[in-house]
Amino acid sequence: MEIQADTTVCIGAGMCALTVPKVFDQSEEEGTVVLLQDVPPQELEEAVRRAVTLCPSGAISISP
């Protein structure tokens, strides 16, 4: 699984960083999403999928 993040639509709600802190962080200045890893380990894939549905702005997406 590979993750893409679009900081131009991200509204910094922090749902991603709350759901999978190992994969998502937020930048200090704008609070927008920062990917700590683009290819998450298998055991985190489920949580990453959950973060994608929880993200209010559609800023994060995954490709297989």
Binding site: G12, A13, G14, Q26, E28, E29, E30, G31
Partner: peptide
């Protein structure tokens, strides 16, 4: 955008 940086997790 200006405020989100202040409200990070």
């Amino acid at each position: 955008k200006l405020l989100t940086g202040q409200f990070t997790v």
